[in-house]
Every structure is written in structure tokens, then in C-alpha cells.
Design a protein around this nucleic acid. Sequence first.
DNA 1: GTCTATATTTGGATAGAC
DNA 2: GTCTATCCAAATATAGAC
Lengths: 203, 203
Amino acid sequence: MPRTPEENERIRRAARDKILQAAMELFIEKGFHSASIDDVAKRADISKGLLYNYFKGKEELLAAMVDLRIEELLEVMRAAAAKETPAEQLRHIVEGALDNVRERPEVFRFYLNLFTCPRQDEVVARHGNRLLGAYAEQFEAQCEMFEKLGAADPRKRSLHFSSTLQGIMLMYTNYSSGFPLDDMKAQTIEEFCGDRNLQPDGS
Amino acid sequence: MPRTPEENERIRRAARDKILQAAMELFIEKGFHSASIDDVAKRADISKGLLYNYFKGKEELLAAMVDLRIEELLEVMRAAAAKETPAEQLRHIVEGALDNVRERPEVFRFYLNLFTCPRQDEVVARHGNRLLGAYAEQFEAQCEMFEKLGAADPRKRSLHFSSTLQGIMLMYTNYSSGFPLDDMKAQTIEEFCGDRNLQPDGS
DNA sequence: GTCTATATTTGGATAGAC
DNA sequence: GTCTATCCAAATATAGAC
């Protein structure tokens, strides 16, 4: 007896997920360029030919991966926005970012690598830019939080905040062993999620 | 009449430099993986075959490029060390780093990309790590500066300092248009090159 | 839907003439 | 020292059988 359309759809989804999962692992482990379609197929335990039945090619795998990441980012922002006060919202962002990098530094590393890519590496750059767009949106929301907090120049304050956060994540991924991540987190919260925003230079 | 050995040596150097120059440009423009040996030869205006007469392969080109960068780093540190007071030394580091990223953001971007590479991308990772080693040395010197400045926990302070600097450079390379680099520079100097080091949390 | 086999392309590297 | 021609390996992608 033939499978129902629903059953077929379910199988297709499962296969697609398995492939995407394998691709994500390998891209993170070996990098986008160094991981081959063959690697992905092997890890997903299917043939190379079948992979092309689900994804047009390597780029579409990357695209799907970035889509998921953007969704994750939006989710963090939604959760932050749900908090009552701007101070709590910012705190949520700090913790979301730093907890994430602690748990999966390679993931952060991968995406950082993605948008430090030369723009001429068109395939990669395209999706790095999509991700950057998501960050830009996040940034706007963040500015509003600083405004509500009463910062003198919310935009600048927000940039300072993001720089600090990015710097910490970057340093942590390189020096993970001796890096006092908790200390840094506490300092950052102390610096940006309190009433120091009211005094332009913090003195 | 035959060329003298000296003359030969001069020609060889010039050719080598031309090739290396071409390679650096292309690696920065297109990325290490995306730039081909053929591209490099074309840009240097020589044949592919000749290139192999000067460099064993693509990796050796990258190695030479990283060597130059490490030399640059050391030079900045030497210049900083030559200053009289630790405050001036740290200030020199901030200005060296931020002026450099302002002038050639693509270069910073390239090296950042280099050591955000997955370690399994062995060729690239190898040289990213060499560069990281140079940073580590720089970091030690920096710690001493904070110690002389009287910081309570020089090592932590130095990490905080580096995070901030790296974060600013990272943000600038992505948002160069609207990023207030001068403001950030001033704030960083204010924060780390003055007597605020004496008050652990700056309050 | 899935596999195997193969076509195609690209790019790193070498050989040998000049 | 320099070039052209060529080899070889890897990787993307497709064709066609089951």
C-alpha cells in the first residue's frame, strides 16, 4: 500500500533535518570551505546524490543554517523585550550572549568567521550580511532600551555596550582557558545595566 | 656578460617581494581559500610555474604574510615600551591599534578571520596560532604596564583592556560608516590610561 | 527516495623547453 | 629565471538505474 502524502512529508522533513544537522556540525568543525558535500553526506549517512535532492547545493545548506541562527537571535530579543524594566532587558541580553558563548564557543566563532569574511567571497559574504542585518535590528531595539534607561546618548551608549560584549566574546573564544568570564559578565552588567548610564563618562 | 651574484640576488628579492605583495592583496580581497595561486601569479604578472620557484606553495605565502604582521606587532610594542610612563605606553597601544584599524580595516578583518578559523582548517589555523602567540607575548608586556600603573589585579585589568580594544575594532570593521571611533578612543584612554585603574570597579 | 557511477571544473603542483 | 604544457587530486554537480 502506498504511503500517504503526510507520511511522505514527515519522512522528507526528517531526512532534511538530518542533513542540515550534519552540515552544521561539519561547517563548524572544519569551516564552510573545508567541509565538502561528501563529508556532509557521509555524516548524514546518505549518498551524495540524495543530498542534492534536498538542497540545491552547499550554499543552500549555509543559508538554512544562517536562517536558524537568525531565528535564535530573534528569540533572545523577544525574551528580552518581555522583561519589565530596561535594566532587566539589557541584563538579559548580556546573559544570553555570554552564556551562549560559554556553552558553545565554536558556534560563536563560526559566525564571527562568517562575517569577517572578505566580501569578495560572495557565497559566504551574502549570508554573513544577512546575519549582520539581524544584528542591526537587534541593535535598534537595544538603543531604545538605553533611551528608556535615561542614557544621555542612547545610540552611542548602545554601541559602547555592543563593543564591550563583542570584545568579551571574542577574547573568550581565543583565551577560553584563563578567561574570567563571570567576572566580566558582572562588570558589564554593573557598568551598563545600572544607573551609570546617567553619567556620560562614569566618573 | 653574465650577471654578478649580487645582481642576481637583488632581482630575486624584487621578484619575491612582488609576488608576496600580490598574494597579500589577493588574500585580503578574496580570502585565503578563495584566492588561487593562479590569481596571485596573474596579479604579480608572472607565470604560475615561476611562483613555485619562489614559494613552496600557497601556505608559504600565508606564512610570509603572517611573519610580516608579527613583525609589525612587535614594532608597535617596542615603540610603546620606549615611552616613559605606563600611562603613555598604554595610550600608545590604544592609538596604534585604533589608528591601524581606521586606516586599513580590511587588514584587521583578514587577521581576525584568520584566527576565528576552525582549528581543523589546519593550514590556516597553524598561522592563526602563530599570530595568536605574538598577541600573547604582547599581552604579558601589557600586564606589566598595568602593574606599574598600580592596578589592583593587573592581569584582569589587562584582559578587560584588551577585550574593550578588540570589541571596538570588531565593531568598527562591521559598522565603519556610523561608528564614532574617535569617541571610543577617547573613552578607552580615559578609562584605562588614567588613575581609574586604582579603583577596581570605577565607581 | 535512494543509490552508484560519472561528467565537469577547478586549482594546486610538477616537468621540461628555452 | 622564466614560460608553457601537463598531471593529479579534490570537490561540485548530474544522470540514470533500482
